[in-house]
């Protein structure tokens, strides 16, 4: 097909696609500050006030922290998820492909933030718990380590995960038309790590009194950790989405058409 001058002129007028990295970078900086700050707090307050749960200082420096976490996290959860729902796009059948691409890329970039948060819960603060158990005799479910792992790191990625899930079903037509089981697993599987704490604490209270990390009562965490493999399912769905979406904004020479 012959290309007229007008069409060439139009193609030139189309602005190049820009990745909006700001939310991702900001998100990661905020998380780094939260998790780094928490780690600093541990170094400062765990040794002086965190060794004996019956000490009033433990209440002051640790239980206060715990309650603050709970209140802030529940508020943030409803704020973020509520915001995503209340400000939803009510006309998803009518989104311009270019806008859709922008949203999709933003969403994928925020998955990096989700994974970053999951790293702190699944690796950094999780393994650290094994070592704190070697400094004290277990005397409460709310140790300086648990307060950061179960009641901070886990809720943080849960908040991000649910927010992203709601972003997907309210702004990305592909994920709104039908609910992706893989995406549900990627969000809800890691979420289940938190309720699994119930099993963990039950086990430590009534079943296995000793601390080694490989005890069966920790395997609930392992099971729900596996669900992150479903990211591959999400990735494949993103590929299908790309195949559907990108040809609407790109021609076969790789130029933007809208």
């Amino acid at each position: 097909m012959a290309v007229t001058h007008d069409e060439v002129g139009q193609a030139k007028a189309i602005a190049p696609f820009k990745f909006n990295l700001k939310p991702m970078i900001m998100g990661m900086i905020v998380l780094a500050i939260i998790f780094g700050g928490a780690r600093w707090y541990q170094q400062w307050a765990a040794w002086d006030y965190g060794l004996d749960a019956t000490d009033p200082m433990f209440d002051k420096y640790w239980m206060t922290f715990f309650w603050a976490e709970i209140v802030i996290e529940i508020s943030l959860f409803f704020t973020f998820v509520g915001y995503m729902w209340l400000t939803r796009d009510k006309h998803l059948n009518n989104v311009k492909p270019r806008e859709e691409l922008r949203r999709l890329m933003l969403w994928v970039s925020m998955l990096v933030v989700y994974a970053f948060a999951f790293y702190f819960a699944g690796s950094f603060y999780a393994e650290q718990d094994a070592t704190w158990h070697q400094t004290v005799v277990r005397d409460t479910s709310f140790t300086p380590s648990h307060i950061m792992l179960f009641y901070m790191s886990m809720p943080v990625f849960i908040i991000i995960g649910f927010t992203l899930f709601f972003y997907a079903i309210t702004r990305l037509p592909f994920f709104a038309r039908k609910i992706s089981i893989a995406l549900v697993l990627v969000v809800c599987g890691p979420f289940m790590l938190l309720p699994t704490v119930g099993y963990n604490e039950w086990g430590h209270a009534f079943w296995l009194m000793e601390e080694y990390f490989t005890v069966p009562l920790h395997w609930g965490f392992v099971f729900f950790g596996w669900t992150i493999i479903a990211l591959s399912g999400v990735l494949i769905q993103v590929m299908k989405y790309m195949v559907e979406l990108l040809p609407k904004v790109l021609n076969e020479k790789g130029e933007l058409t809208s």
């Binding site: 990096v112 994974a115 970053f116 999951f118 790293y119 819960a121 699944g122 690796s123 999780a126 393994e127 965490f221 392992v222 950790g225 596996w226 992150i228 493999i229 990211l231």
Partner: peptide, 9 residues
């Protein structure tokens, strides 16, 4: 990040 977390836990 996801693999560090999932594989490590």
């Amino acid at each position: 990040f996801a693999i560090i977390a999932a594989f490590h836990i």
